[in-house]
Amino acid sequence: MKEFERKGLLERVDREGATVGASIPDTIEVQGETVELQEFVFEMHRRETVPPGERDRVDQAKKNLRRERLQRRQRLEEADISYEEGEEIVEAIVGLDRALNALESLGPSDVEREAKAQEAADQKRWMKFLRQALGRDSSSSRGRR
């Protein structure tokens, strides 16, 4: 492969909207193991939220997909491959990115939900404090007239 072809392929991989219109591969080999990627992603998306036990599985899948993406990108950058092989690698990377985007968009985990609830409770306490400090709280201003 010529250097300008390699740069063009790398540019396609790094393009912001590279995953638009791309599909998640049915299966992909990750770390020497065949993974039913499309089925896994769709299974996780069918649920409104990811249960705590499945969250670990999703996080591990994302980690493995990122690692596989990095290895394939490095191969595209450094290996002595044909342009056709490079095209196949680009398609695989874009599919991995699409799957990663789908997995990243899953509902918040219990930890995230808990943090949001804590933040909402903090805001309520702060607003109550401000109302009391400014004398606008109905319970503290009853005796003042």
Rank of each mutant, 00 (worst) to 15 (best):
F4H: 01
F4A: 03
E5S: 05
E5R: 13
R12Q: 13
D14A: 14
D14P: 01
D14F: 09
R15N: 09
R15C: 09
R15Y: 12
V20A: 13
V20I: 11
V20W: 13
G21R: 11
P25V: 03
E33D: 12
E33I: 14
E33K: 15
T34C: 07
L37S: 01
E39N: 08
V41W: 00
F42G: 08
M44S: 06
H45E: 15
H45A: 05
R46C: 10
R46P: 02
P51R: 14
P52E: 11
P52G: 04
G53A: 07
G53W: 04
E54T: 13
E54R: 10
R55P: 02
R57A: 13
A61Q: 13
A61T: 09
K62M: 11
K62P: 00
K63Y: 15
L65C: 05
L65M: 08
R66S: 13
R67T: 12
R67L: 14
E68I: 09
R69I: 08
Q71N: 14
R72P: 06
R72N: 14
R73W: 07
Q74S: 07
R75W: 03
E78L: 11
A79T: 03
A79P: 00
S82Y: 06
S82M: 02
E84H: 12
E84W: 10
E84S: 13
E85R: 04
G86R: 00
E87A: 09
I89G: 07
V90S: 03
V90D: 00
E91V: 10
A92D: 13
I93C: 04
V94G: 03
G95P: 05
G95A: 05
L100Q: 03
E104H: 14
E104M: 13
S105F: 13
S105D: 15
L106I: 11
D110F: 14
A115T: 02
A115G: 03
K116H: 08
A117I: 03
A120Q: 13
A121W: 06
D122N: 04
Q123C: 05
R125E: 10
W126P: 00
M127D: 11
M127N: 06
K128H: 09
F129D: 09
F129N: 06
F129L: 05
F129W: 10
L130E: 04
R131A: 08
S138I: 03
S139R: 09
S140T: 04
R142N: 03
G143Y: 03
G143M: 01
G143I: 00
R144H: 07
R145K: 11
